[in-house]
C-alpha cells in the first residue's frame, strides 16, 4: 500500500546547511565545491594515520575531521612535508576543522588548488564527532511519505489514516481544540532515525496549514497558538479509520489481538476504528492514545481482565 521507502543521498552542501546551527558550522574554504558533491560514506573520519603516511586503510569517502591532534602533527612537520601530507586529502568529500580554528596559510594554498570544501566548527572535536554522526545518519535515514494526518496526544504520536473525506482533518481539529498538537495534516513524512525509532513530520511547505472541507485552508498556529503545532514526533500508534460496513472482520472487539504495521522495518501498533454516524471519534482517538501510553508503561487492560476472568473461571471448575 505504501510505496517503497528511499534513503536520500546527501551532498556536502546539504550537510553544511543542516549543521549550520546544530554543529555551529561556517565555511573556511571552497563553499562552491560543496554543491553537488556527494557524501558516499555516511560517517566521519579522523585522518591522523593517513596524514602520518599510512594509506592502506584510509576512509577517504567520509568527511574528514581535523582536531587538535592532526593540526599539531601537521604543524610539527617541515613546510614542504606538511603540504605533501595535506595533499593526501585531495579526494575526500569535505574537511571540518574543529574548535573554530583559523585556516593556516599553507592550508589555504593547498585547498585553493584542490577545490575540496573546508568547513569550520566551533565545537570541540569529540562533541562534533558525536553530533555530526547523528545528524548525518538522520539526514540519510530511510523515509517515506504517507497519506495520513499525524497528531501528538498527551505525548503519544498518532497517525490517522483513511480514505480522503473520512474526517481525519476534522478529528485532528477537534483534538487541537482539546489542547493536543498537530504534527502533519494529510501527508506525513516518516523516517527511521539513528536509534531505530520512527519519527513523523510534515512536508515543510504545508506544515502549518490544514484543509477543512467547507472552510478551505486554515493556518493552525495563527488560530490556536504555537502550542498547537509540533515539528516532529515519534510514531507510537496508527489508527485506521474505515467505514463501519467495510471489513468489519478486522475490528478487534477485545483489544487482545494486537495488530502491527511494518514501517521502514519497525513494527508500529495499528488499530482499525469503524466510522459511523453518531460515534464520537475524537474521544475514541484520544482514549486510544492514552491506552497506548498505558501499554507502553506496561499495563494492558484487555490482558489484565482476561487473566482475571481465567482465574475466576478456573475456580468454578
Amino acid at each position: 500500500m505504501w510505496r517503497i521507502a528511499e534513503s536520500p543521498r546527501i551532498t556536502v552542501a546539504d550537510f553544511f546547511e543542516a549543521g549550520r546551527q546544530a554543529l555551529q558550522l561556517d565555511w573556511a574554504a571552497n563553499p562552491d565545491a560543496a554543491v553537488g558533491r556527494e557524501i558516499t560514506e555516511v560517517a566521519l573520519n579522523r585522518p591522523g594515520l593517513a596524514l602520518a603516511g599510512f594509506m592502506r586503510y584510509f576512509a577517504y569517502r567520509r568527511i574528514q575531521v581535523l582536531g587538535l591532534a592532526e593540526m599539531t602533527y601537521l604543524g610539527s612537520l617541515p613546510a614542504a612535508e606538511r603540504i605533501q601530507r595535506l595533499k593526501t586529502l585531495a579526494h575526500v568529500p569535505g574537511i571540518v576543522m574543529s574548535r573554530g580554528r583559523r585556516l593556516p596559510g599553507y592550508f589555504q594554498k593547498v585547498f585553493a588548488d584542490l577545490r575540496v570544501p573546508v568547513m569550520r566548527t566551533h565545537l570541540v572535536t569529540g562533541h562534533f564527532m558525536n553530533a555530526g554522526t547523528v545528524l548525518m545518519q538522520n539526514l540519510t535515514s530511510p523515509r517515506i511519505r504517507v497519506p495520513g494526518t499525524m497528531i501528538e496526544i498527551d505525548g503519544v504520536g498518532v497517525l490517522l489514516e483513511g480514505e480522503p473525506g473520512i474526517g481525519k482533518s476534522e478529528i485532528a481539529l477537534a483534538l487541537i481544540k482539546r489542547g493536543h498538537s498537530l504534527v502533519a495534516d494529510d501527508t506525513t513524512v516518516l523516517t527511521r532515525d539513528s536509534t531505530g525509532t520512527i519519527q513523523g513530520s510534515a512536508v515543510p511547505i504545508t506544515r502549518e496549514h490544514m484543509e477543512i472541507r467547507g472552510l478551505g485552508i486554515i493556518h493552525v498556529p495563527g488560530l490556536f497558538g504555537v502550542a498547537s503545532m509540533r515539528d516532529g514526533m515519534r510514531l507510537d500508534l496508527i489508527i485506521r479509520m474505515q467505514k463501519a460496513a467495510v471489513g468489519a472482520d478486522d475490528i478487534d472487539r477485545t483489544g487482545l489481538d494486537a495488530q502491527f504495521r511494518d514501517v521502514l522495518g519497525v513494527p508500529v501498533p495499528l488499530i482499525a476504528v469503524p466510522v459511523a454516524a453518531g460515534r464520537d471519534l475524537t474521544n475514541v482517538v484520544e482514549v486510544a492514545a492514552l491506552n497506548q501510553r498505558m501499554k507502553q508503561m506496561g499495563r494492558d487492560a484487555a490482558r489484565e481482565l482476561d487473566e482475571k476472568l481465567k482465574v475466576a473461571l478456573a475456580r468454578k471448575d
Binding site: 511519505r145 480522503p164 504545508t206
Partner: peptide, 17 residues
Amino acid sequence: NGVKVNAKSIMGLLTLE
C-alpha cells in the same frame, strides 16, 4: 519525482510543489 500523492486531497497536491 517518484513521490505520489492522492489527487483528491488539496494539501497532498500542495506538498508536491
